[in-house]
């Protein structure tokens, strides 16, 4: 198959970027989207041009490094996959594919399609943890946890922190990411101890970093490669409101 690619090129955060058009040919359907970009890059290098920079690492859909906003959708046209598990058989021969970086004020472009998502780490650092220091733990079976809760906590914890929710949201809101983490801990007895402080600190950090607000458009859920539910956003709202109402001054 042959494709026409329109790719965002930007040398660094400081300079302006623009779209460039490229062609790739002879791509098989079983080639992954990133492997297609590898092919392009090999050709660019051979021609003496600079290859396209893009983030990627595990290439099995779990590390959350790959991003890319493909034809108007983060991680491309397939539901519930990362770009690394998007295969070219999903496109038609001769298609034009427009590839942009994830865009949000807290995700500045570093180069071409690579963006800085360390704001997610900062939100976690603000309180996305249970303060259990090494060596303090009681026996793992000391607190039975209802399977339902454990499963729900897992569903929330399955978030890979790729930022597709932010990229998809018309408001560049990080609510799905933050709420997944808040929910993960709020659903477990171990997490309850710090729940009130946690939700307030994480939300405050999220706002401070310049993410937008949630207007319940649910594009995040639709585009999340791990199918994280917006139920988590409601849970976080609940947690946040009740924490605000009852926490001492």
């Amino acid at each position: 198959m042959d494709f026409k690619l329109k790719i965002w090129r930007q040398k660094s955060a400081a300079v302006k970027g623009r779209f460039e058009t490229y062609k790739v040919s002879g791509i098989t359907g079983g080639t992954s989207f990133l492997e297609m970009l590898d092919v392009l890059n090999e050709e660019l290098i051979a021609k003496g041009e600079e290859p396209v920079a893009f983030d990627h690492d595990c290439r099995e859909g779990i590390c959350g490094t790959c991003s890319l906003y493909i034809n108007g959708r983060p991680h491309g046209p397939d539901d519930r996959v990362c770009t690394c598990q998007l295969f070219m058989r999903r496109f038609k021969d001769g298609d034009t594919i427009i590839i942009e970086p994830f865009r949000a004020r807290p995700f500045p472009v570093l180069r071409d399609l690579v963006v800085d998502r360390s704001s997610f780490d900062k939100i976690i650092q603000a309180g996305g943890f249970i303060s259990a220091s090494t060596g303090n733990a009681p026996d793992a079976n000391a607190i039975p946890i209802p399977k339902r809760n454990a499963d729900k906590a897992f569903d929330a914890a399955a978030c890979i922190g790729c930022g597709a929710c932010v990229a998809a949201c018309k408001n560049a809101s990080a609510m799905l990411f933050v709420s997944a983490k808040v929910s993960h801990f709020a659903l477990l007895p171990q997490g309850k101890v710090e729940a009130r402080e946690r939700v307030q600190k994480m939300v405050a950090k999220m706002d401070e970093l310049g993410f937008g607000n949630c207007t319940n458009t649910y594009a995040c859920e639709a585009e999340c490669p791990k199918g994280i539910s917006v139920e988590n956003i409601a849970r976080m709202n609940r947690e946040f409101l009740s924490a605000k109402l009852v926490t001492d001054k």
Binding site: F129, I130, A132, T134, G135, N136, A137, P138, D139, A140, N141, I143, P144, I145, P146, K147, A150, D151, A153, F154, A157, H184, F185, L188, Q190, G191
Partner: peptide
């Protein structure tokens, strides 16, 4: 295992709530 459970790692559980 104790440490990870204390940190909130959502290991698979049986219906009785145990690991």
């Amino acid at each position: 295992i104790d440490q990870c459970v204390a940190q909130g790692v959502p290991f698979a559980r049986e219906y009785g709530g145990y690991l």
